[in-house]
């Protein structure tokens, strides 16, 4: 029954397009509202935003094109994200493997974890001055905790007999870490990287609104605000959203392909 029902729906093409219903309604509502409000400084029309998006290589208000600013942002987020992950993953593995070490480090982590990365902005400016270093610091902080906690969780969920089987086969501690614990924890670590990247991306845009910045998507939308270019603000927001979504989808695809065993292993 269910099968034929689904087949029928697919033939008419409703089932496969259902995801598009709300987004289309949203765009229609936006356009109607924009026409009704009739004030581009509050809500520009779809066409004016699309116009900005349609010429991604054109310099906007003399501060670089969408693509140029996106490239600067991506470069910054990668630096910060990699820095955060490079500290978080080894630390998480060490904490997961050696309980004593975990007990030693855990209080400090619990104290720092609830502080939002953006609360560090003034301190970052004081320490690193205005510029790349303070942005990387903020982004790295944002990525750090999700990656750390997932790594820790992943290492602790590695089956005891995986470790013991390797020991009876003659594994050294190093081999255990590299060939059993790391691959066994990798699916969970990957989830941490995904979540961490999402937070890093959010921190980036906020970090680019810090004083003294002169490029990047966060800077672009703040700059456009100063010139009341609301269509540029919205276009910039859309680019931020699309890049964030695109990277999450890519990471999730790797997860589904490479770590399928996590679901299939009973």
């Amino acid at each position: 029954m269910e099968r034929t029902g689904q087949g029928l729906r697919n033939r008419i093409g409703i089932g496969s397009l259902r995801w598009a219903v709300l987004p289309v309604l949203f765009l229609v509502a936006w356009e109607i509202a924009a026409i009704a409000i009739d004030n581009p400084f509050i809500l520009p029309t779809l066409e004016s935003v699309a116009g900005v998006l349609a010429s991604p290589f054109t310099s906007i208000l003399g501060t670089g094109s969408l693509v140029e600013n996106a490239a600067v942002s991506l470069q910054r987020v990668m630096l910060g994200f990699i820095a955060g992950a490079l500290v978080a993953i080894p630390l998480g593995i060490a904490m997961g493997r050696w309980q004593r070490f975990a007990e030693l480090v855990d209080p400090l982590i619990q104290i720092f974890r609830p502080i939002p990365p953006l609360a560090w902005v003034p301190l970052a400016l004081a320490w690193f001055r205005i510029g790349l270093a303070s942005m990387v610091f903020i982004i790295a902080l944002g990525a750090f905790f999700p990656v750390l906690l997932n790594t820790l969780d992943g290492v602790r969920s590695v089956k005891r007999t995986w470790v013991e089987a390797a020991m009876t086969l003659g594994a050294t501690e190093r081999q255990l870490l590299a060939r059993v614990i790391l691959p066994g924890a990798l699916p969970t670590i990957w989830t941490g990287l995904r979540v961490g990247f999402g937070i890093a991306w959010m921190c980036l845009v906020a970090a680019e609104m810090m004083p003294g910045t002169n490029a990047g998507l966060g800077y672009l939308i703040l700059y456009a605000y100063n010139f009341s270019q609301v269509q540029v603000i919205i276009a910039g927001m859309i680019v931020i959203g699309i890049i964030g979504l695109g990277i999450d989808v890519a990471l999730r695809q790797v997860e589904e392909r490479r770590f399928r065993w996590r679901e299939l292993e009973r």
Binding site: K159, T161, W162, E164, A165, M167, T168, L169, G170, V180, P183, G184, L186, F259, W261, R262, L264, E265
Partner: peptide, 19 residues
Amino acid sequence: TGPTPRLGMIFQDYSLYPW
């Protein structure tokens, strides 16, 4: 004094590496 490849072990849950 510790695990050694001279003594092979087979566990009830197989403990194969799924990756």
